[in-house]
């Protein structure tokens, strides 16, 4: 085991796959020589050459189309979209092409592509470097959607994504790149060094896609969350005085509903937490599936904590970001009515 930040873990996953499988290539804007604006591909071009790790023109639609073409021709491209706020020019390629290729060709063609992209706020990035667009992709059949919350999961899931035969959008909460973040910007930055999930195997291992993990066991209430909000929720759970269970989804699609339902049916109470805007967000889907599975076991209405339904405002980052206070209030509401 080696101590890694999330950046290093993501880098290591790509390193492992480039080493293991000749059909793997890595590309994106500034991802080649420079190693990516967040260093997630640093050193890889030097190690594997610029035919396997390279810079692309600034054209997200082109990047994904290229990946699809390569994927159809036996390769396993890992692409980097510099910020998920800039994924939209690739939307058509992802939604109309990558996602449906296998289906529309009766299984003749498919594109095993991985789309890595940093998401989320908390870095003073304003409305174009802070978005959490995962819900836009979870709505599309045929795309797997992942958002890890720590280095260990990030590496194991990224390797699984690369080996998966379906297109995967792999969201990386950038606020977690260099340390866990519990939602309070006035606290000194944390490091992955002292976090148990900062211990990562140096070599190959996988974490299965589609499996949630209970990161805190409890009997009073279940929080379902993912990404940065896992850390915020854990801190709020600690503060609440209740015996709160926290589930880190890790994969959004396919959703591990069995894991979720088992917990919520046991606790009878649930709060769903994400950073993305509320209306039409993935939380709504989680909530309705819980309602379908657990209705007769529920003891209180399920509540959501999410970003406000507005663009991410630069000056009001911390009024926007759903911090511990809001999660805590939701726990209280569900517990106390």
């Amino acid at each position: 085991m080696v101590k890694m930040t999330m950046v290093q873990a993501i880098n290591s996953a790509q390193d492992v796959m480039l080493e293991k499988d000749n059909s793997v290539v890595v590309f994106g804007e500034d991802a080649g020589y420079f190693g990516g604006v967040f260093n997630c591909t640093e050193g890889l071009q030097k190690k594997y050459g610029k035919q396997r790790v390279f810079d692309t023109p600034i054209a997200e639609g082109g990047i994904i189309a290229l990946a699809i073409g390569m994927g159809v021709n036996d390769m396993r491209p890992i692409t980097e979209i510099q910020f998920s706020d800039y994924i939209y020019p690739a939307f058509d390629q992802i939604v109309s092409e990558a996602s449906r290729l296998r289906y529309r060709s009766g299984g003749e063609y498919w594109a095993p592509i991985t789309i890595r992209t940093p998401c989320g706020g908390g870095i003073r990035g304003g409305q174009t470097h802070s978005q959490s667009p995962e819900g836009i992709f979870t709505h599309v059949s045929g795309i797997k959607t992942i958002m890890p919350s720590n280095p260990y999961d990030a590496k194991g899931l990224l390797i699984s994504a690369v080996e998966d035969d379906d297109p995967v959008v792999f969201f990386e909460p950038k606020r977690l790149y260099n340390g866990p973040f519990a939602g309070d910007p006035t606290q000194p930055p944390q490091s992955w060094d002292s976090h148990k999930k900062g211990e990562v195997p140096a070599g190959y291992y996988t974490i299965p896609i589609g499996k949630a993990e209970t990161v805190r066991a409890g009997s009073d209430l279940t929080i379902i969350t993912y990404g940065t909000m896992v850390h915020v929720s854990l801190a709020a759970a600690e503060l609440s005085g209740y015996n709160v269970e926290v589930i880190d989804l890790r994969t959004l699609i396919p959703l591990d509903i069995d894991h979720i339902a088992a917990s919520v049916c046991r606790t009878g109470r649930c709060v769903v937490v994400h950073e993305a805007t509320k209306t039409g967000g993935f939380g709504a889907e989680i909530l309705s599936q819980i309602q379908e599975e657990c209705f007769w076991k529920l003891e209180a209405p399920i509540t959501r904590v999410a970003g406000w339904d507005i663009p991410y405002p630069h000056a009001f980052e911390w009024e926007y970001f759903p911090g511990q206070g809001r999660v805590l209030a939701a726990i209280k509401l569900v517990m106390e009515g």
Partner: peptide, 27 residues
């Protein structure tokens, strides 16, 4: 701030000067 704190620095907007609102999304 005439952008009301909503935009990153340098993403100016100035209607009076016929200067469009700058987007962070390229192109």
């Amino acid at each position: 701030d005439n952008c009301k704190g909503r935009q990153l620095p340098i993403m100016y907007t100035w209607r009076q000067g016929n200067f469009f609102s700058i987007s962070g999304n390229l192109g």
